[in-house]
Simulated assay, not measured.
Amino acid sequence: MVEKKTKRRDFLFTATYAVGAVGAGAVIWPMIDQMNPDASVKALASTEVDVSAVDPGKTITVLWRGKPVFIRRRTQEEIAEAKAVKMEDLKHPEKDEDRAKDPEWLVMLGVCTHLGCVPLDQKGDYNGWFCPCHGSHYDTSGRIRKGPAPTNMEIPEYKFVDANTIKIG
């Protein structure tokens, strides 16, 4: 008789613990799940841009995470000009090949690295971007060439989904 009560008691303890663990999980899971980002935050994490209508020599601006992103389809002359720049002439040396995954397309944050202004396209001494607020001049690769900005314009994480679509983020 002793063995039967022991087995029954062990079963009752095990069943109680199992029900308690399931109950604790049911209470804790919603608290943990609510810490995940909501759909609006996830939607801002990346954006896909159709670039099929962008002609060579033109720039489009899209918003990503509340910031402007310049997507420029560069001409062969602009690409050659950007590649010909000597590294010692740059304030923040970066090769054009390191900034543009595909030489024809330049994707970068449209924010001046001096004080966060939005530079103007195809302006300035290097026919790239010019920030009229404080006089920073960027070349056709978005590299700082003249003015108070300390670094080149930032290149966001991006990839080509297909020939006409760029995914930023």
Rank of each mutant, 00 (worst) to 15 (best):
Arg8Gln: 13
Arg9Ile: 15
Ala18Cys: 09
Val19Pro: 04
Gly20Gln: 15
Val22Ile: 11
Gly25Thr: 11
Val27Glu: 09
Val27His: 12
Trp29Gly: 14
Met31Ile: 07
Gln34Trp: 00
Asp38Pro: 05
Asp38Gly: 01
Ala39Thr: 15
Ala39Asp: 13
Lys42Leu: 14
Leu44Ala: 14
Asp50Pro: 03
Ser52Met: 02
Val54Gln: 05
Gly57Thr: 00
Lys58Phe: 10
Lys58Met: 10
Lys58Gly: 04
Thr59Ala: 06
Thr61Gly: 10
Thr61Gln: 07
Trp64Tyr: 11
Gly66Pro: 01
Gly66His: 04
Val69His: 13
Val69Asp: 11
Val69Asn: 08
Arg72Ala: 00
Arg72His: 07
Thr75Ile: 02
Thr75Lys: 03
Ala80Met: 03
Lys83Asn: 02
Lys83Met: 05
Lys86His: 01
Leu90Met: 07
Lys91Cys: 08
His92Phe: 07
Pro93Asn: 00
Lys95Cys: 12
Glu97Tyr: 06
Asp98Gln: 14
Asp98Gly: 10
Arg99Gly: 11
Lys101Asn: 13
Glu104Asn: 10
Glu104Leu: 10
Thr113Cys: 08
His114Lys: 11
Leu115Cys: 05
Gly116Met: 02
Cys117Gln: 04
Cys117Trp: 04
Gln122Lys: 13
Gln122His: 10
Asp125Ile: 08
Tyr126His: 04
Asn127Val: 09
Cys133Tyr: 04
His134Phe: 10
His137Met: 08
His137Val: 08
Ser141Tyr: 07
Ser141Thr: 07
Ala149Val: 15
Pro150Thr: 08
Pro150Cys: 10
Thr151Trp: 15
Glu154Asn: 00
Glu157Tyr: 13
Lys159Thr: 15
Val161Gln: 02
Asp162Lys: 06
Thr165Ala: 05
Ile166Gly: 01
Lys167Trp: 14
Lys167Val: 15
Ile168Trp: 14
